[in-house]
Structure formats: C-alpha cells, structure tokens
Design a binder for these strands. Structure first.
Length: 427
RNA sequence: GGAGAGAUGGCAGAGUGGUUGAAUGCACUGGUCUUGAAAACCAGCAAGGAUGCAAGUCCUUCCAGGGUUCGAAUCCCUGUCUCUCCGCCA
C-alpha cells in the first residue's frame, strides 16, 4: 500500500519508480480519483456537521420541554442529501483502494534496472562449486537410494508431490532442526509455531491478496493455506502499535508451504525443486524504519551462514527491477550450487519490504518521546528452503562409488548416528 | 455439536438513547520537589482523515456489516471472534 499524500506531493517520483517495473504512468488516474473523493468527502462532512449541530439543538430544546418538530424536519431533509454523498464517497474510496492495493512497492535506488532475471546482479560468491564429471540429479540419487518415491506420492496426491522415507525423511527433518537451532541459538530469532491456515486479512496484509489468488490454495470454508510462513509471522504485528523497546522483533518458523504453482507448467517438473507442498524455515524481522537496511544485510548473512555451515557453495545476487517481487523494495536471492544441474538455483530470498506491508496491515510503533505513530518496516527471508537444501545436500554429498550420500557434519547430531545414507540400507 | 457470557483508548476497566471521544487506574510525556534517583504532587496524553500559510475548525471510529431514531458505545438484526459449562475428539 502506498502513502496517498506522498503520491500527491510527488507523483512523478512514483511514476518514475513504477516505470522501472515496466508500469505505465499510474498517478494521473489515482490523483483524479483522489481529487474527486476529497471533494465529495468535504461536501459530506459539511452535511454531517449540520446534522450533528441540529441534533444537539433538538436535545437541548427537548430537555427544556420545548417543541423541536421544525428542526427535526429540517434534519430529515439533510439526511437524504447526506445518504447520497456517503454512498458516492464509499464507492470512490473503494475504487481508489482497489487501484492502490494492486500497485507494487517502490524500488530502492540501488536496485539494478532490467527486464527479468537475466539482469540480476551477482554481489558475492562463497565456496568452490564441485563439478564432477557425471553428476546425478537429486531425484536420481533419491530414487537410487530407494527413499524418494514419486509414484506413491502421485497416487495419493497427483503431480508435484513427493513421499520420502527412512534416512531421507530424517535428513529433511535434520535440516530443519539444524536451521531452527542456528537461528534461535546464534542469530537471535524467536521460534514460532504459527497457524498454517489464515484469513483474507492476513493474506492482504502481506500482499498475496488481492492480486495473487491463483497462486494460493483455499479451503472450502474460505481460509487460505500459507504459501510461506512470512504470512503468519509478519501478521503477528498487524493492527498493533508497538513501543520502541519491543524492537527489533525477529521470528523464525519451520512450516509447510503450499503453492498452486499455476503458470509454472513445464518448469522443474522432475524432482522436488518445485512442489505444491514443501518445508521452509522462514525468518521475519520487524524493525524501526531507520534500521531496515542494516537488518536486511544481517538477515541475508543469517541465511548465508546456514549454507556455509552445511558446506554448500552459493552466490548471492541482487534482483533487478523486473524480477523484484510485488512487496519488496529490494531483494537478495541466494543461489546454491547444484552439481546435478550444473547451475546455481535459488534457495533463499531475502526482502526488505520497507513500510509497504506495514501500511497494509496497520503495523505501527511509537518512537520514544513522540506522540506520533509511524509505520514499521518488515523484512522476510528464507533461512532456508528445506526441500531445496535437501536437494543441495544430495547432489553435493553424493558418493558415486556406492550411490550413498554423506551426512554433512552439522547434521550428524540430528541423525541418530547415521553418517551416510546408503541404498537399500533401510537406514 | 448444545447452553450461556462477552468484544470500549498502548493496557486494564466504567459507561444502557442527547455537549460521552468516552469516568477511573496503569503505562507514557512534560514540570515541581531532590545532590541524583525513587516516591509524592501538578499538567498533558486515542487513532485515522478533510480543510487551512498557520493557529485552528470539522468529520469518522467504542469487533464488523446492516437497521431503528432528529440523535446510538448505549436499542434491533446478521456475521466474526473470545471466554465459561456440557458433549465429542488428536
């Protein structure tokens, strides 16, 4: 959501910024609507004032035992006109809101311009990408281990689901546990176990609604399945006015995520890279406006630290204007090296949403010593996607000599003594 | 699923048709006092919006949406949520 007064003050800045995302000039229509609405509103308020004043007079006259019939009739007349203005005002406000809530966040100045992912800019690399001669893809490794079963999953649920068992199921859980423990123990995050089903309001607050319904699953009673724990975690502060001392808030959660993947037909159809359901450890930070840039870097470090500890090579990129998401002002993607694909693939996305989501969900705070409230800044990042981390571990720790997979050192404490997954081991 | 109670400002909690945007307490802000602090005392303190150079004026909001009325936090209807008791249940 956008600050209407800021748009009034400097419409060109908004149009220029939106142009970087490929949008045509939006402010003329917005300003026209806004102007009309304010005119109607002023009119409406004047009538309301008259009604209020006269009603008070009636009260005074009646309390003195007088006859107020004449004024009462007068107010009845005002009410008819008023109803018309109120209706028009309501419609205009709704239209304005519809336009504003469908427009993406402004981009930070240092976001590189470009039409799509080809223009993203790499900012650093970590680790040496292993490039074995005949690297297998994760699903080949998983199936040879006999622990990754797409057929059964398809029988149960259709395409884009997987069933894993034995050591592989445990390895997935170990990854999640390790990530949570690291974020809570070393990075200062508070672990949260949130609802996975949320209302419209929550989805609106974090920007999934009203524009992106086709990406979501909805229950028969109208709740939405979260596509990321960002929704649950960020909306914790919806409709609240926080004290400065409460900030920053740092939440982490390990949850399933549900995505319809409409429009991604044909993409990543094999394996578990793109599923309707996957686990992700999410990080969400709620901070004062002057702290969000710094927090964005910190959060990205936290995600990178997970990959470093897992011994996985990765690179970090800044998304360009055309690739940056709806809510984000700036986004870093972290891409992990996958030998089986001979490529870096996204495993985390860390975004600074500035006050964009906070405005939508009315999340504010009161800076110490002031009376005014201000919108908070919200940030979210994967820390990291568990399914894709599993892919990375399989491909990077694969032992071609026996088809096994070594357990990374940091996961060993979670594996109950298993140091290597082996085919048909039943481990 | 059955029966009942409730939803008020940052928090707690009064308020059942007419200067109630809302008592009181806590928290918070400023001041007095104090070497400093605490305590005590005094004062201020809801949010959002329109209008105005400004001071200010005005409007809306007491869960949400309808309705009754000249006038609604207060009455009526619907919905949502919370709590209590009973039943069922991971």
């Amino acid at each position: 959501m956008h600050d209407l007064r800021a748009i009034r003050d400097n419409p060109q800045a908004f149009d220029d910024n939106w142009a970087r995302r490929g949008l045509s000039a939006q402010t003329p229509a917005i300003l026209a609507l806004d102007e009309e609405r304010r005119a109607v509103q002023t009119d409406m308020q004047e009538l309301q004032q008259q009604r209020n004043e006269k009603s008070k007079q009636i009260g005074q006259i009646k309390s003195q035992g007088g006859d107020a019939q004449a004024i009462m009739n007068e107010v009845s007349g005002i009410k008819e006109k008023l109803a018309d203005r109120e209706e028009r005002e309501r419609i205009l406000a709704e239209e304005l809101n519809a336009v504003l809530s469908a427009l993406p966040n402004l981009l930070a100045d240092d976001v590189p311009d470009g039409p799509d992912e080809s223009a993203n800019v790499e900012i650093r690399r970590n680790g040496e990408p292993p490039r074995p001669n005949a690297a297998l893809q994760h699903f080949e490794i998983g199936e040879k281990l006999g622990m990754m079963d797409f057929e059964t999953a398809a029988k149960l649920s259709g395409a884009r689901f997987v069933l894993m068992h034995s050591g592989l199921a445990r390895l997935e859980r170990a990854l999640a546990q390790f990530m949570l423990d690291t974020h809570t123990g070393e990075h200062g995050y508070t672990e949260v176990s949130p609802p996975l089903l949320v209302r419209d309001d929550a989805m609106y607050g974090t920007g999934q609604l009203p524009k992106f319904t086709e990406d979501l699953f909805q229950t028969t009673r109208g709740d939405w399945l979260i596509p990321t724990a960002e929704v649950s975690l960020t909306n914790i502060v919806a409709d609240r006015i926080l004290d400065t001392e409460e900030l920053p808030l740092r939440f982490t959660a390990w949850t399933p995520c549900f995505r319809s993947e409409a429009g991604s037909a044909g993409k990543d159809t094999r394996g578990i890279i793109r599923q309707h359901q996957f686990y992700k450890v999410e990080m969400v930070c709620i901070v004062a406006p002057d702290k969000s840039n710094e927090e964005h870097e910190r959060m990205t470090d936290c995600a990178e630290n997970i990959l470093k500890k897992l011994g996985l090579a990765f690179r970090t990129i800044t998304l360009c204007s055309g690739d940056t998401g709806f809510c984000a002002r700036k986004t870093y993607d972290i891409e992990v090296w996958l030998p089986g694909q001979n490529a870096y693939r996204e495993i985390s996305s860390c975004s600074n949403c500035w006050d964009f989501q906070a405005r939508r969900m009315k999340a504010r705070f009161r800076p110490k010593g002031t009376k005014e409230t201000q919108f908070l800044h919200t940030l979210n990042g994967s820390g990291v996607a568990v399914g894709r981390a599993l892919v990375a571990v399989l491909e990077n720790y694969h032992d071609p000599s026996d088809g096994g997979v070594f357990v990374p050192d940091v996961l060993k404490p979670y594996m109950g003594g298993i140091e290597k997954l082996l085919p048909a081991s039943g481990a």
